[in-house]
């Protein structure tokens, strides 16, 4: 056939185009510069603030005074005179107050955390050492080491603010913002609304709620 020259030309052209395309593709691979940023002086950084724990200093008596205000008692009113039961770990044996307290926190007893020596107004570590309110996390960390470690590295516990502390501060949750010390399990609750897809995903009847 006459066309063999044309065929050859076309094949050569095709190979040339392929080679060109391969070349362009190879050049497209981009390099990301990985450079370690300059370490900043801690003093230059904005602070990471902790939510302050809200502590009880009074307890409600359930009664109302003549002005209609609820009558409250300070912890010392009772605990300065009563002898603590070192074995008690529930509200059951208590005669007055704390009746509505549900306690579900392992095998702990009241005085595992509450310090009887300070008339229950402050806390203590397992060693007996007293803990100031601002260091309360140490108390939790005695048992929950891994969680405390994760917390320290920002991988446990909610936060708001800045990831970049050179630009602004960060506010962090305290353990007890989410975990009630008396029943620390995160409670179940209804989630926010799900996606309202025009064609919702198909689920076999009965396998999903």
């Amino acid at each position: 056939m006459k066309v063999s020259a044309g065929k050859t030309l076309f094949t050569v052209g095709l190979i040339a185009i392929s080679a060109l395309a391969a070349q362009i593709y190879a050049n497209v691979e981009k390099n990301v510069d990985v450079e370690t940023p300059v370490r900043l002086n801690q003093a230059d950084l904005f602070p990471v603030n902790l939510n302050a724990p809200k502590l009880l200093s009074h307890v409600s008596t359930g009664q109302i005074d003549s002005d209609g205000n609820p009558i409250q008692l300070s912890c010392q009113s009772c605990h300065s005179v009563r002898v603590p039961d070192p074995k008690n770990g529930s509200q059951g044996p208590l005669l007055s107050f704390h009746q509505d307290l549900d306690f579900v926190h392992g095998k702990l007893v009241c005085i595992s955390c509450h310090n009887p020596e300070g008339s229950f107004s402050n806390f203590r570590l397992a060693s007996g050492q007293s803990v100031e309110p601002e260091n309360l996390m140490e108390l939790c960390a005695q048992c929950h080491g891994p969680q405390f470690r994760d917390y320290q590295h920002g991988s446990h516990g909610g936060m708001t603010g800045y990831w970049d502390l050179t630009k602004g501060p960060r506010q962090r949750n305290h353990c007890i913002d989410c975990h009630d010390p008396h029943q620390p399990a995160f409670p179940q609750f209804r989630p926010a609304a799900g996606p309202k897809d025009r064609f919702p995903p198909h689920h076999e009847k009965g396998t999903h709620e």
């Binding site: 006459k2 066309v3 044309g6 065929k7 076309f10």
Partner: peptide, 14 residues
Amino acid sequence: NPKWYIPFVFLSIL
């Protein structure tokens, strides 16, 4: 004229 269409027919096949 084959020159004007045969190459294109081959091209169109590929």
